[in-house]
Every structure is written in C-alpha cells, then in structure tokens.
Design a protein around this nucleic acid. Sequence first.
DNA 1: GCATGTGAAGCAGTTCACAGCG
DNA 2: CGCTGTGAACTGCTTCACATGC
Lengths: 227, 227
Amino acid sequence: MPVRFGRRIPEPTIARLPIYHRVLLDLARASVVTVSSAELAGACGVNAAKVRKDLSLFGSYGTPGTGYRVDYLLRQIQLELGLDRQRPVVMAGMGYLGHALARSPGFVAGGFHIAGLFDVDPDKVGEIVGGAMVRHISELAQICQAEKVSLGIITTPAPAAQDVCDLMTEGGVRAILNFAPAVLSTPPAVQVRHVDFSAELHVLAFYQAHPESVPGPVHQEFAAGTG
Amino acid sequence: MPVRFGRRIPEPTIARLPIYHRVLLDLARASVVTVSSAELAGACGVNAAKVRKDLSLFGSYGTPGTGYRVDYLLRQIQLELGLDRQRPVVMAGMGYLGHALARSPGFVAGGFHIAGLFDVDPDKVGEIVGGAMVRHISELAQICQAEKVSLGIITTPAPAAQDVCDLMTEGGVRAILNFAPAVLSTPPAVQVRHVDFSAELHVLAFYQAHPESVPGPVHQEFAAGTG
DNA sequence: GCATGTGAAGCAGTTCACAGCG
DNA sequence: CGCTGTGAACTGCTTCACATGC
C-alpha cells in the first residue's frame, strides 16, 4: 500500500521500518498471529505511541482491541520498503570492509543483489566475492548504466571516495551509502548516507567522559546517515 | 576545555564533533591557520549557523571578524572527544566484519586500542588480527574487568548478539557499538548505538521508491545510533 | 474492555537575524 | 566591515490522551 495521499514520511520513521520488518519476520517465524503496538514497541526498543503513529502514516493496518495481524503488517512493510523486487547495487572498494559487506547475509536477505564490485587494484580484479566478480573501477560507470543501477556503496579509503562518488553519479547512481570517512559532494538529485565506524565510537567515548550529556533511558534508537 | 557549566550537549552536536575533528585535521595538515564557520561548514556538509552553535556549546573558541584558529580549535575538540588518551575496546565476533573493523585505520587513529578480540569458534582463537590475538569468548568478561574496558563492539551474527552483550555488561562495559541486526536490551546504565548496514540501504531504497519523502537538499548529515 | 488512530501539546534541534567585538 | 556568539522564531518529531471501533 502506497504512502497515504502523498504524505511526506519523516526520516526517523523510515529508519525504523527495517527494524519493524525484522522483528515482524521473527514473530511470523514463531507463528505469532497478532501483535499490539506495545509488544512490537518492546521488541524494537521504541515507544508504543511511536509505533502506532509510524504505522498510521502508511495506512490503518491494525484492529482496535486486537492489535496488528503479523503477516498482513509484514507484507505491507515489505511493500513499502520495496522488498518485492531485487534492487541492483554496486560497490567500490574491495578492502576488508568491502569483502565483509559483499558477503553479508543482509545483502541478499535485504532484497539487494550485487550488480558489480569494483577496485583499482589489478590484483583484486577477477576475484569472486559473495558470488560476484571484482571488476576494475574504470568499468564502473558503464556497468551502472547497463544494469540501471541506482544504489551505490563506497568502501574505499577516504582519499578515493570523492572520485568514486563522481563515477557513480556519472553512471546514473541516485543514492550512495558511504563508509569512507569523508564528506562527499554530489548533485542535489543524489542522496548520500554516511556510516562512520570511528565516529560512532567517538560518540560513545564522549558520553563516557561527559555522563551529564547522556540522554535519558529512552531505549536505543538508530543511527542515520543523510541525504 | 570541559563543557560549559554542565550544559547538556545535544546528541546531534556530539555526532558532528568527529567530523569537525577530521576536517580540521586536514586543514592543519594543509597549514591553514584560520577557518570561518562558513568554510568549516562547507567542508563538513553542514550549515554555518549549526557550526557556530555547536562550537559555542563548548566555549568561545572563535574571534569575531577572523574566524577560528585551526590548531586551537582542533586541540579543543580533541580534548572534548578524549583523544588525549587511548581507550581500550573489546570486540566480539571475528567474522568478516570483525576482521575488517579490527584492521580499520580508524581504530588506532581514532584513539582506541584493542584490549581484546573474541569469538566462539576455536579455529579462530589464537589468530592475530590488527595486532591483537583472538581469544575465546569465555574469557571476555574477565578481560574486560582486568583491563577496565568500558567500550565494546559486537560484530557477531544476530542470534549471538544478546548473549555477548550480557557478557560485556557483566564485565563492566558501559557502552556498546552493535553491528548485529538485533535489538539489544541492557541495564539503563549501559548505552547502545546500533549500526545496521542493510537498514541503511533500505532507507535509501525507500527514498527511491518514494521521492516525495526525500528531504530537501539540506546536504548530508549523519547517522546516529542510540543509547 | 481493550487497543488503534490521531489531534493537540510538548520538546528538541535547526535556522534566523542581529548585537557586539576585533 | 566581517564574523562570532546567541536569543528568539521556527520546524519537526515525539509523547500524550482520548474518542472511536471491535
């Protein structure tokens, strides 16, 4: 079911959908038939009101007095996330992190498939990782175009990130997940989310040194890149 | 310089500090003496007002009419982030991702050092990764206590994450960076940040399917886990 | 009676805009 | 005259609380 009447969905809500999805999948596997917003909230580490508001943005999927049907809700969220079709993804930078991500179960299970892996290093070209062959970076733009890839992942060292980003946008990539510790500049039509391992660690370290800044016990939420 | 008069620092501000730090480091290496908030903002992909407000929360580090002295500001941020001392970290789960992170340059450069790597698999025990030896998970709590480790990283598969989390909290770990796709429950005194690779990809995929929900071209910001 | 869906209230972070200082 | 530091306005997400429906 599409978003209700062109309603703009808040980013934090979108970031919670994958969590709801995963938890619902677990519930479905455990043959649970219905969940209340409170139960779902508990399993996701969020507040019940937030769950209800989030879901209500997409439609009225629950039954007052009963809760939500697990299988139906699961299906609706799958549709929202576009999990009904496989999305092609390219990844540049086949160092340790690139290898790790390319083999990640979240890739296939998440509805993505690797349209291409790329690196500058000729020694890495030809290697098979996660079922895909590593190609030379010079082929990136061409493959993106040929396979109509709109999602790119950057796992290169920081100094290479901007160049690779440019190649991707050239190839028609519209959204980039950047693991390199570098700020990317892109045309406005291209979205970037940034995941920064050491920055995350620094945030935790900061809180240890400044306990007065630790937010109240409002349960864990999620880190989000940006676009 | 400590946070001004016990002022509570907003989480988004804390998450931006490591970025400011990295950019300032680059400027310092390029022998740049001063930066204005606008320049720094440009390089960090944020808004100039945000930079000024962020920095003002820690102290008055700038000079009206001139800007900020790069070396001085850099030092202040280093102090805020606690980069003056090395922080011990433990990591559990030495699959591909664990290997990748353990070798990450962000580890050492970020002011962290590996106090212990752990896995259940006896075949992995004894292996040297990133200069540290992999130990059996049963030693985790003991090592945490002995080395007074307060930061933990979880890179196990989802089903093992909660158990490992419990072992860490038992060992006295007070903050956890969780890469496993699972919601962790911890005592309130223990903070958790969650980094979820496939969830990030899903957010980008969602926006592609729902362009009307894409936030305005407000430049890239950052993903944040939670505590 | 119990749980959803939602207007309204509350709160937090961002952005504005300008006084003040170098 | 330029740029910082900051109160004030604004925007947007979260939380509350309750009418509605099963």
